[in-house]
Design a protein around this nucleic acid. Structure first.
Lengths: 350, 350
DNA sequence: CTGAAAGCGCTTACAG
DNA sequence: CTGAAAGCGCTTACAG
């Protein structure tokens, strides 16, 4: 805010009403040490002159800024918008604003990003680390959203159980040969998801795991993963550890002339915005990001009595709790069908 | 930050060194009214005790928070991560932190989001409005990133010229029948892009425009757009107003058994993260978001002398300037080939 | 129920 | 070159 806001202070209200600033403060904060009538006229006056409290003064006085930092080292994470929205919403409901902590695309700069936020006086930090990077103690409340397998994790989706759900679903469809596809073995989230998938598929299903990062080290980045050969080998389902990967799988299969889901089912995780935009729409597992965000904010162990909105009591999970994921069945998965080797002619889609 | 940070204040430094707080302030702010020696020892002491300036006190005193707000009403905008990163980077270089302004997914709540930021004492707001929503005067510096066609726009990519580039490129490939695909006619950005496309394609190219929102009003959301019929009609290129739309087009075509780019070229706009992940990789137009962000921050008309980093002078555009877009040619576009009516057998891709 | 006073940590004229 | 003083707008014991 700029320098000029001379009239809209507590002092201004106090003078206009011939009372003390302390009384104005008490009336406005609603702590009830003021007579009902006086409080009412103070509030009316505040409204009238367009009073906006000075966060700076409040912060200086109370030692709390009312701001939390959100650190998302991997900005290319396509989940970013949903996460940011969920955190902002939960924070706002708890009386907090959210500062962006960016590590300039470099995961290594995570610590640096946190330091910058701390300099800004944030009351706490929510971190969504990437690839198992450890978060050191920073002398301020921290909540970490990662994977239950990550030490220090505060709250997260139950990625393993999500994998189990997806695995069971694919098995129930009748798939007996499934390719599991992950990006990187260093991601606890992905390892959990694939681990759960294996458990959910059960012992009767043959499966194989493809780690894209590893494969690309051999064939080069962005190259074809050789998925159509897998179809030829008899794989009927491709379960990816993320929608991003599932998209890659889906388009590569389609490009090779393979019909999804008729010849091959494809599934992902996360329910990204475009997951229902592609054809066929992607079957996926959704995280309850709102609940995760609320828990993360609550885990910061604070709670400014917020002014206007009385937030409905939201369910809270204990520290470290795993939030269930939700299976979203769409068109990219179906029961496997026996398909002749030569590519079957598809009916006109319209 | 929490209440306890008793030692790391200017007063603490002053006492430790037997000087006044004013001198410490002058030394640390580097305004040079302090002898070199004293300044050095003050800085050393600050370092030693881990001094972190209180933003709250500074804000209260100077009337400026050093924080700007970023309002992105359409959080489902897949460009969000790149934009947020670019703005944070530019703001940080100018000495600012960035507060997230969320309108809870509802475009109508844009004004509300701005108000919340203002209450937080931001020094200015950067807004990326959606679908031509007008931004009213808010009594604080504002920069709007939208489309040159939008009244009040501060800086943006030159979407029209980007369209021209793409149109020329497609025409140069030999396409003579092109389907232009936009989401909504109420988006100035999309209207500009398609307008530029038409201009770039030139008079020799037959084209038709498909507005998805309008079409979906008839056929229902998420339905097939009937693109394969267009291929049958002789359209050889599909130019979408965004990568998200292009993804939809690509997968629908592929699902219908159409080979991209052999039978149909597909292009988008924005170079989203997954654009190079799909097969075939998407030809697209990239915005220089870093430059746009720098201009937006600069347009706020402020500039805190920032502490450590001396940012290299960055090129600045005048108010309202249009930033050139960059054509990224990838695999989804190619010269059209005559294809027999019956779907041509594709070679194995591996 | 209401008010006077102190103080959060900084910066900025103003003296010296 | 250095310091004493005031004040940014608020909240919080403490009196009355």
């Amino acid at each position: 805010m700029n320098i000029n806001r001379p009239l809209a202070t507590m002092t201004a209200i106090a003078e206009a009403l011939g009372v003390s600033a302390a009384t104005v403060s008490n009336a406005l904060s609603g702590k009830g040490r003021v007579s009902v009538d006086l409080a009412a006229s103070i509030k009316a006056k505040a409204e009238e002159i367009g009073y906006v409290p000075s966060q700076a003064a409040k912060a200086l006085r109370t030692g709390r800024s009312g701001v939390i930092g959100l650190v998302l080292p991997d900005i290319s994470n396509p989940l970013f918008p949903q996460i940011a929205q969920a955190i902002e919403h939960a924070a706002s409901a708890a009386g907090y604003a959210v500062l962006i902590g960016d590590s300039r695309g470099q995961i290594a700069r995570q610590t640096e990003a946190i330091a910058r936020l701390l300099e800004r006086g944030v009351d706490g930090v929510i971190i969504i680390p990437r690839r198992g990077s450890r978060v050191v103690d920073i002398g301020a409340p921290v909540a970490i959203i990662d994977s239950p397998s990550t030490p220090g994790n505060t709250v997260s989706a139950d990625h393993w159980e999500g994998g189990v759900q997806m695995g069971r679903y694919l098995a129930s469809l009748g798939h007996r040969r499934v390719l599991l596809i992950g990006q990187s073995t260093t991601s606890n989230v992905q390892v959990d998801r694939l681990g759960g998938l294996k458990a959910g598929l059960g012992p009767d299903v043959r499966r194989e795991t493809l780690w894209v990062e590893r494969r690309e080290a051999e064939i080069g980045a962005g190259q074809c993963l050789g998925l159509s050969a897998k179809v030829a080998e008899g794989f009927t389902a491709f379960a990816a550890s993320s929608d991003l990967l599932a998209l890659r799988v889906l388009t590569e299969l389609q490009r090779s002339g393979i019909d999804v889901p008729r010849q091959a089912s494809v599934s992902g995780f996360d329910d990204l915005v475009w997951s229902s935009v592609v054809t066929p729409q992607l079957t996926t597992m959704r995280q309850d990001l709102d609940l995760i965000a609320r828990n993360a904010v609550a885990a910061l162990g604070i709670g400014i009595g917020n002014k206007d909105t009385s937030v409905a009591a939201a369910p809270m999970a204990a520290n470290g709790e795993r939030i269930a994921m939700q299976l979203i069945v769409r068109q990219s998965t179906a029961a496997p069908v026996a398909v002749p080797e030569e590519i079957q002619k598809r009916e006109e889609s319209e």
